[in-house]
Design a protein around this nucleic acid. Structure first.
Length: 563
DNA sequence: ATTGAGAGCGCG
DNA sequence: AAAGCGCGCTCTCAAT
């Protein structure tokens, strides 16, 4: 059963040929049961209102997200010329969860003006997508990718709906401990003021020197001959000068103040929850991005404020060395997969396994070497161990090298499930052709090589990062289904909104890590399901290939304690 | 006053 | 140009 939600100009919707008033949609969806796959233009447009009405959707097909994948995929033959101008489905912007016409109020006050605007025809688009899939030799992988992407879209809206539990007073205490009490508007917190004095003293600078002004600060540093040419942390760290220590601390605290200080707290935390919008597929590789509040960059120092509700706890899980494991599986590299299984065959620290394989002497070298292989590093210790890794794991290294070469030629690369990279842009091609002009100089040739290499590093990383994102999508899709199946615990009414009241639910996701907020009594069951979901994701992507995806799992009442 | 580039740093 | 990927955000400073 695949009902399609079609917006009407009069503000109602049509579902399977039936006219449904907007306010009736939640009950229509609820009565359809879990077997239905709800198909619509944009999950962000419809799902928040359903959740607000307490209705969860089990499966969906997000036409906008699916279109973007299929249109770009080398595994799908989209009809029409490749350079056809973008159609409505190519340009459809995702509905914002935070805009003034936020869908949370969509069903509260339906009316001609508040109803959804008409869009391109979802029924025709679904038929087109079905035809494209039917004509693809890799239909199975693509269907899995579209299902996972759509499930991710559901999970993203659900996490926004539930919010990340956040205690503002704990956050305030963290800030006060490290920065001093909250200053008046426009004033510097006490600890930063102290450090500013120390910086000026170390530089023999006048009291007017403002450490927030990069230009003035750099000038003062040059005058004293500290030796730094920029103000970057890594460069300052190399230097031996009295200004380095207070300056580094100043920068660190200043960062906390400006990015996650009191202003952030007031802007993004309300009623005990932090809400940031996840942008599914917001990164070229298929990773999620976020919008508002910087959810994917939450510094470790403020994670103490992430505290479970009374009677609840967190299950925090992250996939260990996800990207190299994904690479081993994509490349069919049995040797590297074995290094990830460890001596007992039950999932090891993969970098320790690489050391045990004899390729490199230390774990640190295994790590920087693999990162270099996946990012395209050539220098330093990373570059030095690459030949050793290539000898021990030829299949994996050849796989990423081939992706890099394709990128250098200006070609597309594709993830395991079928998400393809974009083509390089006009400036890239101009740089390439510049090297072949009659009057091309060494500069032009060097520039062309540099941009080719740079795009090669992008495509090299794309196949790994993108496939890792696919594993994570399958993981999260499996988790949300399994958590729902666990059912509710018997708990007094709390802050968790319907439909998740009393039920374990996802509250946070960062690339290879998830946080589940769960009634404390269900924590062990949740941990087991999260483990089972990781194994399921591995099977979905790679079948019987003997790659393992071990997790580190922790149960803790605050996020900070989970590490 | 608003806009945009660049620098820098947080996360994975 | 921090060797080597992907982001979001906030700041300064200069241009509009």
């Amino acid at each position: 059963m695949q009902p399609v939600v079609i917006p009407s100009p009069d503000g109602s919707v049509r579902v399977d040929g039936r006219r449904v008033a907007l306010g009736e949609l939640p009950s229509v969806v609820a009565s359809a049961g879990a077997a239905a796959r709800w198909t619509w233009d944009d999950t962000n447009r419809w799902y928040p209102g359903l959740l607000a009405a307490g209705v969860r959707v089990d499966r969906s097909h997000d036409l906008r997200l699916a279109h973007r994948i299929l249109r770009g995929s080398a595994l799908a033959a989209w009809p029409g010329p490749a350079d056809a101008p973008p159609g409505p489905w190519d340009t459809l912007p995702a509905a914002s969860l935070t805009s003034a016409d936020a869908p949370a109020v969509l069903f509260a006050a339906p009316g001609p003006s508040s109803g959804p605007a008409e869009g391109p025809d979802p029924v025709a688009e679904l038929a087109l997508q079905d035809a494209v899939l039917a004509g693809s030799a890799a239909a199975g992988r693509l269907r899995l990718l579209l299902a996972a992407e759509s499930a991710g879209a559901l999970a993203a809206v659900e996490m926004y709906h539930a919010g990340l539990p956040w205690l503002a007073d704990v956050h305030d205490a963290v800030l006060t401990e490290t920065l001093g009490p909250r200053p008046r508007l426009g004033e510097r917190p006490a600890r930063l003021e102290e450090l500013a004095h120390e910086i000026r003293a170390a530089l023999g600078a006048p009291a007017g020197l403002n450490p927030d002004s990069p230009r003035d600060l750099l000038r003062a540093i040059e005058r004293v001959g500290v030796g730094a040419r920029t103000l970057r942390k890594w460069e300052l760290e190399q230097l031996d000068h009295p200004v380095v220590e207070p300056l580094l601390e100043y920068k660190s605290l200043y960062r906390l103040l400006t990015a996650n200080g009191w202003a952030w707290l007031e802007a993004w935390v309300r009623d005990g929850r932090f809400r940031s919008e996840y942008v599914v597929g917001g990164v070229v590789t298929g990773r999620w991005a976020s919008s508002g509040g910087g959810a994917l960059q939450l510094p470790k120092s403020v994670r103490r404020a992430v505290v479970a509700d009374p009677g609840w706890t967190f299950v925090v899980a992250d996939a260990a060395q996800l990207e190299p494991r994904v690479l081993a599986a994509m490349a069919g590299d049995e040797v590297m997969a074995a290094a990830g299984r460890g001596p007992d065959g039950r999932g090891a620290d993969m970098y320790a396994g690489i050391v045990a394989s004899g390729a490199v002497p230390t774990r640190e070298l295994a790590k920087v070497g693999m990162l270099g292989a996946m990012y395209g590093g050539t220098t330093g210790s990373s570059g030095q161990v690459l030949p050793r890794l290539a000898k021990t794991f030829p299949r994996s290294l050849a796989f990423v090298d081939e992706a890099a070469r394709a990128g250098e030629r200006g070609e597309i690369v594709t993830t395991h499930l079928g998400r393809s990279s974009p083509l390089p842009g006009a400036t890239w091609h101009e740089a390439q052709s510049g090297a072949y002009q009659d009057d091309a100089g060494d500069d032009d040739v060097a520039k062309a090589r540099a941009s080719a290499r740079s795009w090669g590093r992008f495509t090299r990383n794309f196949v790994v990062q993108g496939t890792a994102a696919e594993w994570a999508l399958c993981w999260i899709a499996s988790i949300r289904r399994r958590l729902w199946a666990l059912g509710p615990a018997d708990l007094p009414d709390g802050l968790v909104p319907a439909p998740f009241a009393g039920r374990p639910h996802l509250v946070f996701f960062v690339h290879d890590e998830i946080v589940v907020h769960t009634p404390a009594g269900l924590a062990d069951a949740v941990a087991a399901e999260v483990q089972a979901a990781a194994a399921e994701a591995g099977r979905l992507l790679f079948g019987d290939f003997p790659v393992q995806f071990p997790l580190s799992v922790a149960v803790a009442r605050t996020y900070a304690d989970a590490k």
